[in-house]
Every structure is written in structure tokens, then in C-alpha cells.
Simulated scan of single mutants.
Amino acid sequence: MTPADLSLTVLHAVRRAVDEGALRVEVPERVKVERARAGGIGDYASSVALGLARPSGLDARAVAAILRERLRDSPGVRSVDITGPGFLNFTLDGDSGQELVRDVLRRGEEYGHREPTGDVAQPVHRADVRAAVTADAVRRILRSQGTLVRVACEDAADPDWALLGASPEAEHARGRLATDIAPLPVPFGAAELHRRLGRDAARWGLLSAAGHDHARLGDELLQQHERNPLFLVRYAHARSRALLRNGAQLGISPGYDEPVEDATRLLALLGDHPAVLLSAARHRAPDRVARHLEAVADALLAFQHAVLPLGDEKPSAAHRSRLALAEAAGTVLAGGLSLLGISAPDQI
């Protein structure tokens, strides 16, 4: 069971409790589950009962008990415990990492994407290059979450935006809709940014900072150094692909056959990816995806040295599993960069 599967399982338990009259609350749109903290119980935890306590008129532990009764027999869940003021703690059957890695590799760069929801969005952006590029990334992220999107611009579009991958053909809103994508502007035009930084680095600089912060568009975006977050993310992706090539030369193919004990952080970050995409879509904040990719890249680069045999070490099932995890991490990095409109080269 993946974190996304567990989130849906808990949401279904809430809906069932409401349908049966055990809870009188409005069913939330989603339920957040997180990796259990060090010293905690089980694999994952959720504070959903605390959030439902006040509207239900019940104590949070009472709400948690109602939900636990409806979760105990859920496939993939071994046990459900209640801790503290009303946290639900889940212990999953088998190796949750195995299922997670297999899910990433099965879905490829579309891991974390959702089926069409029927929702329609029409974001309106201010008529400047940063807003236009942000709107383009928001369009990509919303579509990944099953939403139909039609972008509009508050004024006439600039054809130069196409240099950075933003459509100059966005519908002119003409005051009919409120502008909702308006990050702090930058003192550069699209043509200058493309000439000085190129498309990928310019997009990263425009998208990686939150909209209320100034964009970072200095020459450091072109430096081939891990202090440059864009290089870090793309380098980590390239390393994952290099590990696959090196593994093939050693006769090792990826296959998550046994748990990888020393990759807790990397597995947790991969499991968080669907929730990050959903959050970025809800808040129309591509910077959330960029920050998540930085964290995944950092964890993968810390893990990479343990993937393949060293010295006289013989290839084993453990190496197959580690290689599969590295491939999954590279897949998440490539998928995330694609949503930002940035390429993910296999070699750097």
C-alpha cells in the first residue's frame, strides 16, 4: 500500500462513518498521511481525527476510535493504533517500500498523476514573463491532477514568452476574470533571459522561488556545481541513469526483491510525491514541486554510493533492490522536471 492508497483508505473510512451516522461532519476532500516520526508507532500517521473532532462535537480520541473500527480490516493495513490526543498510526503489511517502488516504476513519469476529475480551471496571469511561465507550470501541474485547464492573460501576451515555453496564445481575460497568478515581477524580458540563461535555467529561476519572493536569476544557475539546485536535481537524475547503465554492465537488473534498510528518507520522499503534486495544484505553487525535487535529489545522491557492488563484493538481491530504488528516484525527478517544463538529461 502506497501513501496515496492509504490516504484514500482513510478517506473512505471517514465517508463510511458519515454514511452510517457514526460521524456528523462534512467529508474532507483529502486526508493527509505522513511517515511516522522517530520513536512513533507504525509506518504512517494521520491527524484526521483531530481535524474532525470539533465539527463532530466529539473528543478526538473518540473520533479516532470510530475510524479505527472501519480501518482494521482494510487490505494492506496490519494494525491501527491511537496515540496522543487522537493520532491514528498505521502499520502496513509486508514491505511498503517494495510496493511504493514498484508503483513508481509501473507508472513511470506519471507517478503521482490522477485520473480526470471533471474539474475545470481557468487561471488568469498577469502580463509579464514570470507570471506567464508560472501559469504554464500551473497548467501542467493541474492537468497532472486530472483538471481541465484553460489559461488566460489579463492583457495582451508577449510572443517572446514562447522562448521560455509559455504560450503567447493565452486567451485575453479582458477584465472578465480576476487575476490569480501574479508573482513578484522580474526586471528582465523573456528574450534577455533566454539569451543569458537558456530555457531550462530561466524557468527554474522563475519557478523555484515562492511567488511572494524575488526570483533568483543570476549566473549561478549555469554553474555545474551541487550548490546550484537546478544542477543538483538534473545531476541526480543523470546519476540514476548512470547507475542503471553500470548495473547492466555488471549483469544487475533493477528489481525490488527485499527491503532497503538505509533509505528511509528517500523512500519517504518518493511516497510524498503525489501529495506534493496535489498541494502544488491546489495552491498553484510550482515552487513546491521544485523544493521537493531538491530534497529527492539530495537523498538520492547520499544513497547512490551504496547501490552497486564495491571492490570484490558480489552482486546480490540487495543490489537489485537498491538499483530499483535509484531508478524510481530518477523517474520522480524526471517527472517533476517535466511538470516544470524543464528537461532531464540522461548524462551531464
Rank of each mutant, 00 (worst) to 15 (best):
R239E: 14
R245H: 13
H273G: 04
H292D: 03
L217H: 10
A280C: 10
A280D: 09
P309Y: 08
A297Y: 06
L301P: 01
L278S: 14
N228A: 08
A210F: 13
A302H: 11
P254Y: 07
R245N: 12
P274H: 08
D257A: 09
R241G: 06
Y235G: 01
L270C: 05
D262E: 15
G218C: 05
R282G: 09
H305N: 09
H214C: 04
L250R: 14
L293A: 08
F231R: 00
D213S: 14
R234L: 02
H225C: 05
G311T: 04
D298I: 00
L222S: 09
D298S: 14
D213W: 12
V233N: 02
A236F: 10
L244S: 08
G211Q: 13
P254K: 07
A263V: 01
G311V: 09
R288W: 12
L270K: 06
E226N: 03
A306V: 10
V296T: 07
L301I: 02
H214V: 10
S240V: 07
F231K: 01
A302G: 11
E226M: 07
L270V: 05
P259L: 04
V307P: 09
S240C: 14
A238Q: 00
Y235C: 01
Q224M: 13
V260F: 05
A297C: 04
S240E: 09
D219H: 11
L207Y: 03
F303T: 03
A281L: 11
G251I: 02
E294L: 04
L230P: 04
L244P: 01
G247F: 09
G211V: 11
